[in-house]
Design a protein around this nucleic acid. Structure first.
Ligand code: MN
Ligand code: MN
Ligand code: ZN
Ligand code: ZN
Lengths: 153, 153
DNA sequence: GGCCCAAGCGCAACCGGGTTGCATGAGGGA
DNA sequence: TCCCTCATGCAACCCGGTTGCGCTTGGGCC
């Protein structure tokens, strides 16, 4: 990947980002491809702050980042989760739904938040209500932290 | 219930609030009993703003209210939920646990948030992780709004 | 009932994640 | 290449929640 004066030329990795934008009939801009590129290769949901720091070199304005993320949300390209610290985290939507189709896990030790893609949220039926969507959050220790905790015994 | 110059004398309804505070070894203050009294008789989890407006007459400072709520949290007298609007809502804890023992429902039409006391959160088991707590949020239509929606057809 | 001090309170200023309005810049269809 | 629309940057703003500090008060003690 080449960078010149902070601007990145479109390379291999960006192809997927551009394709996603084209499919969603969104304009292909530098900020959007960079964000998508990051999100596509991120293990975990990222905050706006984390995204901005990762793209520091390119110096995008935070408002622009928020607006791009909102656009992605509107197109269901990403989904957004609210954690206990009341900051949003964004992750690519793999399932086609709007993003509450899988639970999210937060490790109380390392603080990592993970999308549990592939794990189903058990359906709850509620007398008299119409349930339209569900979200589930889990807390505990992630595999790495669990192992450390066990070693410390 | 008597009020004089904005100060409320302790009456029948406050007894329970005072008892809760005594049991938790917390000082009995006007702000705390008023808050607890409200929360004890509230149907739904309330925001700090709603609590403050309800106690407008007594003119408590919002910092004091936040601090009282934090104290209640520490004593597990109340639990707190984070909704999509990223404001906290507080409700009396009936179950003894720290409050994530039941799901919470938000009506997309009237905006009401409800504690689903008595409904269990289905346990999820996650390979390699230690799950310590779970939360579940549901969205849809509450019974009242569902009925209106059906009438409108 | 009065004394005393830790704990609770009010105030003002602050913090930080997210938003808005508006002028300028750039994507992309024709 | 032109031009319109939409994206961007900037500054100011919003608002839920926090912090520091000096004053007040609950309640244990005599
Ligand atoms: Mn996810
Ligand atoms: Mn509840
Ligand atoms: Zn961890
Ligand atoms: Zn409703």
């Amino acid at each position: 990947m080449q960078r010149v004066a902070g601007k990145r030329f479109t390379g291999e990795r960006d192809k997927q980002a551009v394709e996603i934008l084209r499919n969603a009939k969104l304009r292909v801009t530098s900020c959007r491809t960079s964000l998508l590129d990051l999100l596509l290769h991120a293990k975990d949901p990222l905050t706006q702050k984390e995204l901005m720091e990762a793209l520091e070199e390119q110096g995008f304005n935070r408002v622009t980042i928020y607006r791009a993320l909102q656009t992605f949300l509107d197109s269901t390209i990403v989904h957004r989760i609210v954690t206990e610290d009341r900051t949003w985290r964004f992750a690519i939507t793999h399932c086609g739904h709007r993003g509450h189709c899988h639970p999210h896990f937060t490790c109380r030790r390392c603080g990592r938040v993970r999308c549990l893609d592939g794990v189903a949220i058990p359906a709850v039926d509620l007398e008299g209500h119409r349930i339209e969507s569900q979200a589930m959050y889990l807390w505990g220790l992630c595999p790495a932290c669990l192992q450390e905790a066990e070693l410390a015994l």
